[in-house]
Measured scan of single mutants.
Amino acid sequence: SDEELKKRIEELVRRGNKDEARKLAENANSDEARKWWEKLEQL
């Protein structure tokens, strides 16, 4: 689900694993996940 995906992306970003988070968001084929990633990346 998008919610689970967003949690995983956020967790990866928090751990400093941005590349992994980006790949996850891009491969998810989910606009919501991509937007979430872009938002987190700004922080």
Rank of each mutant, 00 (worst) to 15 (best):
L12P: 02
E32R: 05
N17R: 14
L40P: 00
D31I: 09
A25F: 04
E3N: 10
D19G: 07
E11L: 00
R34V: 12
R8V: 12
E41W: 07
K6F: 13
K7A: 13
S30Q: 04
L5V: 06
V13E: 04
W36M: 06
A33V: 15
D2F: 15
D31R: 04
L24R: 01
A33M: 15
A21D: 02
L5Y: 04
N17E: 13
N27K: 10
E38Y: 00
R8F: 09
V13L: 14
K39G: 11
W36V: 03
A21Q: 02
A21L: 10
R8P: 01
W37F: 14
R22M: 07
E32H: 05
E3C: 13
E4D: 12
K6G: 04
L43T: 11
A33R: 04
E41R: 09
L12S: 03
V13P: 02
D2C: 12
D2V: 14
E26R: 01
A33T: 15
E3V: 11
R14H: 13
D2M: 15
L12A: 10
N17A: 12
L24E: 03
E38T: 00
L5G: 01
L12E: 05
D31M: 05
W37C: 08
L5N: 02
W37S: 00
A28Y: 05
E10I: 11
A25Q: 03
D31E: 11
L12H: 05
A28G: 07
K35Q: 13
A21W: 01
D2Q: 10
A21V: 03
G16Q: 02
N27T: 13
K6H: 08
E26L: 03
K39H: 14
I9H: 02
L12N: 03
D19K: 08
E41A: 14
K35D: 15
R22G: 03
E20C: 07
R22N: 03
R8L: 14
S1V: 14
R34G: 07
L5Q: 02
E20V: 06
A33Y: 10
K6T: 05
G16L: 01
L43P: 06
E11T: 01
L43Y: 07
S30H: 05
R34D: 10
E26T: 04
E26A: 03
K23V: 10
E4V: 10
R22A: 06
L40K: 00
L40E: 05
G16I: 02
R34Y: 13
E20D: 08
N27G: 11
D19V: 10
K35C: 12
E3R: 09
N29V: 09
E20L: 10
N29I: 10
E4S: 09
N27I: 11
E41P: 01
A33L: 15
K35H: 13
E26P: 02
K35V: 06
S1E: 09
A33P: 03
Q42C: 09
L40A: 06
R8Q: 11
E26M: 05
R8G: 02
E32W: 09
E3Y: 07
K18L: 15
N27Q: 14
D19Q: 09
G16K: 01
G16V: 02
A28H: 06
L43F: 09
Q42M: 11
E10M: 11
I9Y: 02
K6C: 15
K39A: 14
K6Q: 06
E11F: 00
W37G: 01
N29W: 08
K18Y: 15
A21E: 02
K39N: 14
K23M: 13
I9K: 01
S30D: 09
L40V: 07
W37Q: 06
R8E: 06
R14Q: 11
L5E: 02
A21C: 05
L12F: 00
L12C: 09
R8S: 06
E10Y: 00
E32L: 09
W36F: 15
L12R: 03
N17P: 01
R15V: 13
D19Y: 00
W36Q: 06
L24D: 01
R34C: 10
E26N: 04
N27P: 02
E26W: 00
Q42R: 11
E32K: 06
D31P: 08
N17Y: 05
D19I: 08
N17Q: 14
E41K: 09
A25V: 15
A21T: 01
N29K: 12
N27F: 07
L40C: 09
L40M: 12
R15A: 14
R34S: 09
I9A: 01
R34P: 06
A28S: 14
D31Y: 00
K23W: 05
E32F: 07
E26Q: 07
E4P: 06
V13K: 01
R22I: 06
A25E: 02
I9F: 07
